[in-house]
Computed example of a mutant assay.
Amino acid sequence: MTRGTTNPNRLRRMDRWIAAVHGAELRRAVDPVAVDLGYGAAPWTAVELLTRLRAAAPRARVVGVEIEPARVTAAKPYECDGLVFRHGGFEIPIPQRPLLVRAANVLRQYEEGEVSGVWRRLCARLAPVTESSRGGLLVEGTCDEIGRRHVWVALGPEGPRTVTFATRLGSLERPSDLAERLPKALIHRNVPGEPVHAFLRDFDRAWSAAAPYASYGARQRWIRAVRDLTADWPVTDGAGRWRQGEVTVKWEALAPRG
């Protein structure tokens, strides 16, 4: 069981990214089911996920899943059209194979060596890849208490695909401030010799080089720094996402060595 500390609007950055990059998959699906895994002591994140997904895919449904039965009981009054709560864990206690599983701040308390096994278990429950679909998406990551800084890994049925760094730009001193919010698979790898450490080092250097753009605002400085990063790192998104204080990189470039 997680600590369950959940503030309203905490996962807004993750939700908006999901709606933007996975919305088309949700719209095409006959029954677009999403799972909010480990929503915590209060159901706010599941309620908000439904609202944001339905803006992109009006038929989307959300199932909130919690390992603590008392939390499920407390959430029941918030059930509505498209939103239900179930008791369970990594087995995902629903008959369908979901098109989305969001697990935010769930694996923080686990050991690094346990993460890959949990990933495999959750990815095996995702909707499969077909000729018309890339399959389901698992989004697993960590954020601060009010959602200003967030890092997450996106995984398909085949495994990890990308890592996204997202922040409120006005609160950022340097990109490496996001290191404390790295997901469990990466947070202990922020040491010399590891790819994620090299990435954050290069990001800080690009941020410093882009200092003249600060006169136009933190957003323009971030965009310039990320643009410089693309020369050496496989950034997968474009300026439209960068403007949101995001950057997404291929998993292979940041994956732990060994």
Rank of each mutant, 00 (worst) to 15 (best):
C143Y: 05
V35Q: 05
A255M: 03
D31L: 04
W242D: 08
A60C: 06
V247I: 11
D232E: 13
P212W: 02
R181C: 13
L178T: 05
N9C: 01
P8W: 09
I67N: 05
P183A: 06
A75T: 08
G159W: 07
R71S: 10
V196G: 07
I18K: 04
A56L: 00
V235Q: 05
I146N: 15
I67Y: 09
A46W: 09
T164W: 14
N105P: 04
H188R: 06
Q220K: 13
R13W: 04
R12Q: 12
L50Y: 12
Q244W: 15
C123D: 02
P175H: 06
R221T: 04
A218D: 08
E25T: 09
L37Q: 05
A209C: 02
T164E: 15
A124S: 12
R120Y: 01
L172Y: 04
D144L: 05
F165I: 11
A255K: 03
Y216K: 03
P43D: 10
E180F: 00
R224F: 05
T51C: 06
A127M: 11
R181M: 12
I18D: 01
G193L: 11
W251N: 10
E48K: 09
P93K: 04
P256R: 06
R102H: 10
D36T: 01
I187R: 15
T236V: 15
G136L: 02
R27H: 11
A29K: 11
R221N: 04
V235I: 15
K76T: 15
L37P: 07
S116L: 08
G147C: 12
W222I: 04
P77H: 06
Y216M: 09
V115H: 14
T230V: 09
V21Q: 09
G23K: 03
V30N: 01
R125K: 11
E68P: 02
S208N: 11
R61H: 10
G113S: 14
R241V: 11
I146Q: 14
A154F: 05
A60N: 01
Q96Y: 02
G113P: 07
L100R: 05
R102E: 03
G88Y: 07
V196W: 11
V62F: 03
H188K: 08
L122T: 14
L229R: 13
A210P: 00
R257H: 06
V226Y: 13
E91W: 07
R13C: 00
A253R: 05
N105A: 13
A74K: 06
V115C: 14
W222S: 02
P234L: 10
R121G: 10
G40D: 13
E25A: 12
E91A: 03
F199N: 09
P8K: 06
V30Y: 01
D204F: 02
P8F: 07
V63W: 00
A20C: 02
D36P: 08
E140H: 13
W251Y: 13
D15R: 15
P175W: 01
V65Y: 06
A214V: 06
R61A: 02
G193R: 13
T167L: 11
S133M: 08
L254H: 14
E114C: 03
R168F: 00
P192I: 07
A154R: 12
G258E: 13
H188P: 00
V30P: 00
W222G: 07
N105D: 15
G258K: 10
A57I: 07
A218H: 12
P77F: 06
V153F: 08
Y216F: 12
F165Q: 01
K184I: 10
R227Q: 14
R224M: 10
L11N: 14
R201W: 10
K250G: 14
